[in-house]
Design a protein around this nucleic acid. Structure first.
Lengths: 149, 149
DNA sequence: CCAAAGATGTTGATATCTCAACAAGTCGGG
DNA sequence: CCCGACTTGTTGAGATATCAACATCTTTGG
């Protein structure tokens, strides 16, 4: 019974790693890596997000996002219209080059999603997402309740 | 449509992190951390596994497992009956101290699993595991097919 | 019995993530 | 207008994971 929990965590670890590899494969020719991909992707979907909004969507640490944005900005993938010194609350935009790479990434994601979806019915997919979200919340609750003790 | 892939990866990332935190919470008082927990746990379930077998079950890199075992051995959590210099193919066993901590970990895992399971039916659980495994395989296949191009 | 090939494990370099401390910007009340 | 509290973002240090190269052990075929 309990053994299934570890089985479950091992699978999650493995999937996590696979996702990172797929992202890397797609953008390594540009010198980009997995964490950059999420930023590009979400800006592709929604132009003008701020750093904090990106953090929320990627579920990444703000430190990770901050460094990703540094790299993307210095290498001409994104623009930041900030009046102030830093990126404070300022909306971020893809450059033409950024949009090009993001489109490539989006296409790849689409292909992978097709592969993954092929063996599932729409119903199964929905159920799976619901379970994932439920588990995520439930684990967070575990962490919090433990901390309070 | 594609947006769900990123949603999915964000959730996986988040769950991954939560799992690590839960493991850490449970063993930090012993100076242990997340990667050590998997090793202890699997030895608790099945005594006498070798390093490679542990790698397979944890889905961890052999380098990670190797270093975890180093730590667990020098700190008296496991025993290695190796005739040869290294751990080569030799079965690993928990010490009394190791078994004590592993039992604590197993109990914790059981509690977390109860929480997570509470909101799911047995049927949903089974479906979820099946989907996870399927997705894991499918992503691996994507990685391989890309590499061959 | 030996050499070569394959399996197993270790090590070092590097990249990455995470936490916590800090800096900078914004906002609201007096 | 200014002070203090809050939000937002950056930075540095340390922990961790990952990859590739290497070392070691076993097995197999001659």
């Amino acid at each position: 019974m309990e053994e299934r929990f570890e089985l479950f965590t091992a699978l999650i670890t493995k999937i996590s790693r696979s996702i990172r590899k797929i992202k890397n494969q797609e953008v390594e020719e540009y010198g980009l890596r997995s964490p950059h991909v999420s930023c590009l992707y979400y800006l592709y979907i929604t132009d003008g997000l701020t750093a904090t909004e990106l953090c929320e969507r990627c579920e990444e640490d703000k430190a990770t996002v901050s460094r990703s944005l540094d790299y993307l900005e210095t290498n001409g993938y994104i623009l930041c219209e900030s009046k102030s010194a830093k990126r404070y609350k300022s909306p971020l935009y893809l450059t033409e080059q950024g949009r090009m790479v993001a489109a490539k990434v989006a296409a790849k994601i689409s292909r992978v999603l097709d592969d993954v979806s092929a063996a599932m019915t729409e119903e199964e997919r929905v159920a799976f997402y619901r379970s994932l979200a439920m588990i995520s919340d439930s684990l967070e609750a575990c962490i919090k309740s433990d901390r309070e003790q």
